[in-house]
């Protein structure tokens, strides 16, 4: 069976995907694959309070080794060295199995709480690491699209923009959240997301000028960011300071605890975006060990949320 056939098989999963994404109204913002299922649900999504958390496995993760098609000879033929032996896989059916480090994910799938879309890609993939990443962030290959898919999603849900709608936890802003109407709240360490200021300076820092006819575009951008920083930094810092959890996120918590803290503090954010730092999955050699280890971190971190009893669906 060719890879193309594999992909056709996976189309039956679209049912599960639709359920998973139905609350968010993924409309014209998403690639065509999602568009049909989601367009009808856009209006409903704008009013409910579901939250989307996106964790990017930067570098990137090798999907065929995360959920390996052990039932397909072609997999082992094409991957004589890095193919995972079927005995080591956590099987979800006669054809696919999770990488050994992903304990618990097969349970989530069988309970109907996990959707998987296998074999995402596009024709004639670019071999440039940087171009490929840009395509993943915009979900619009070969298009010159300047906004990210999460950014376009936000613009679709809330045209004109809503403050604090997107939160991106990272050192720099991801292209994925770049938006026409929204200023994403971007920070790294919530306890450091603050201005160190003297008491008497605070009234001055309250004011951020509005743009007028003389404001140049860069200046306008900076004023918007300043406003977002002023409005959100105290909220974020307090949310983090007050967050208490008995959950063990494992040795590499990623940024999920920070997101949990904000959700618990009832931040009005609906779209959260974070990633493994520094292209952790980017290897040219020795993929097996590193990817195996990174997937266990991911699993440990996410497992806490799935065990928490909250109504979470995974995709």
């Amino acid at each position: 069976m060719s890879a193309h056939d594999l992909f056709k098989r996976e189309l039956t999963r679209r049912q599960v995907l639709r359920t998973c994404l139905c609350g968010l109204g993924v409309s014209a913002a998403m690639p065509a694959f999602f568009g049909k299922a989601a367009r009808a649900l856009a209006a409903e999504a704008a009013d409910n309070d579901r939250i989307l958390v996106v964790l990017e496995l930067s570098g990137g993760n090798d999907g065929l080794n995360t959920l390996a098609p052990y039932g397909d000879d072609a997999y082992y033929r094409h991957r004589p060295t890095i193919g995972i032996k079927r005995e080591r896989l956590r099987k979800i059916d006669q054809h696919f199995g999770f990488s050994a480090g992903m304990a618990g994910f097969e349970r989530l799938f069988k309970d109907g709480r996990l959707a998987i879309v296998h074999g995402c890609g596009y024709d004639n993939p670019s071999f440039s690491h940087f171009t490929s990443m840009a395509y993943w962030h915009t979900a619009a290959p070969n298009s010159g699209e300047e906004y990210g898919w999460v950014g376009r999603l936000a613009d679709g849900l809330k045209p004109g923009g809503t403050p604090s709608f997107i939160v991106n936890i990272d050192e720099t802003q991801s292209l994925a959240v770049r938006s026409r109407d929204h200023t994403p709240v971007v920070f790294d360490d919530p306890s450091k997301f603050s201005r160190r200021a003297f008491f008497q300076e605070k009234p001055v820092f309250e004011h951020v000028a509005d743009a007028d006819g003389d404001t140049n575009p860069s200046q306008k951008y900076l004023l918007n960011v300043a406003r977002s920083a002023r409005d959100t930094s105290a909220l974020v810092r307090d949310a983090w300071a007050h967050y208490r959890t008995p959950i063990d996120y494992g040795i590499v918590p990623l940024d999920l605890p920070k997101i949990a803290a904000l959700i618990e503090a009832r931040m009005p954010t609906r779209l959260y975006y974070t990633a493994f730092r520094h292209n952790a999955f980017d290897t040219h050699v020795h993929q097996a060990d590193l990817h195996g280890r990174l997937l266990t971190y991911w699993r440990a971190s996410c497992a806490t949320w799935s065990g928490s009893g909250a109504p979470i669906r995974w995709c």
Binding site: F130, N168, T172, Q173, T183, P184, V185, V186, F187, D188, K192, F193, S194, R195, R196, A197, S218, Y221, L222, V225, A226, S228, A229, T232, S233, H278, N279
Partner: peptide, 23 residues
């Protein structure tokens, strides 16, 4: 960070980084 160097322009500015510049 990578062989592509630094992104430049508005990439230098996020809400967190803008506060940090003042710090």
């Amino acid at each position: 960070p990578t062989v592509a160097g630094w992104a430049q322009g508005r990439s230098w500015i996020t809400p967190g980084l803008l506060l940090e510049r003042g710090n």
